[in-house]
Design a protein around this nucleic acid. Structure first.
Lengths: 122, 122
DNA sequence: TCAGTTCAGAACCGATCGGTTGAATAAAGA
DNA sequence: TCTTTATTCAACCGATCGGTTCTGAACTGA
């Protein structure tokens, strides 16, 4: 029912401010559902659902401590996401402006020029 | 209708393999919708919609060249996303294993121990 | 002017999402 | 055993998502 690839699930899990806040909380140490729910005007069940999304993305692992089911951060998927983004790092450093010039050229050129190969190195 | 914060929109836009593939294509230079659609078994309209999502996340900007509306990568939001992930970098380096030990402790401790402070430095 | 190409807009569809409520489960403690 | 606490499950809701098809607009070129 959720055949999405790992990276998609990671990004999808991060695409919600509530879940990001929960991760931020977990960065300070494990927490129970109640603790995680505390800052939010939201039912426990809703928090539990968010937690299950994070779990599905392997971003948190759960334990068991009496009635509590403490959640703990697992940053591995964040590393993978960061690595993916890293491939684009070059675009917000040197070549960024060069690429802008590229589009300017393009908007008054023909479609044959749509792929002008990388002239990044200048 | 889409009051989501910037980071959420960025991650949401990245949470789809089709859109990530489109960004990868755009990393090699601007492209028309037709060019972007070519690798996918999908209607132009669908690709156009994906493009609009990327546009909404400020990940691509559009130009105009005759009938063509070339799309071009804008990596700025990727930089912001990368910066957000960067805050967690520490969790997949030194302290990662220490944190694992932490949870082991926790699963047989009381909820009062749920926040055991960082013992990252071995 | 007319036809062809490229693209976007609108309406629609089933599936998923983020939330609710209310009942069920699991463990602790009296 | 019975109650309390912590959490999940199940059903439901409206909104959004990813895709379709059909229609129309923008632009080129004969």
């Amino acid at each position: 029912m959720a055949p999405a690839d790992t990276l998609s699930r990671t990004f999808a899990a991060l695409a919600d401010p509530t879940r990001r806040a929960m991760l931020a909380r977990l960065a300070r140490g494990p927490a129970s559902v109640g603790e995680l729910a505390e800052p939010f005007d939201m039912s426990f069940a809703a928090v539990s659902k968010h937690l299950r999304v994070l779990e599905g993305a392997r971003l948190v692992t759960r334990g068991r401590d009496a009635q509590y089911r403490p959640a703990m951060l697992n940053a591995r998927p964040l590393q993978d996401a960061s690595a993916w983004l890293g491939d684009y790092r070059v675009f917000w450093t040197e070549s960024f402006d060069a690429l802008g010039v590229l589009l300017d050229d393009l908007t008054e050129a023909g479609p044959d020029d749509l792929r002008p190969d990388d002239k990044k190195e200048t």
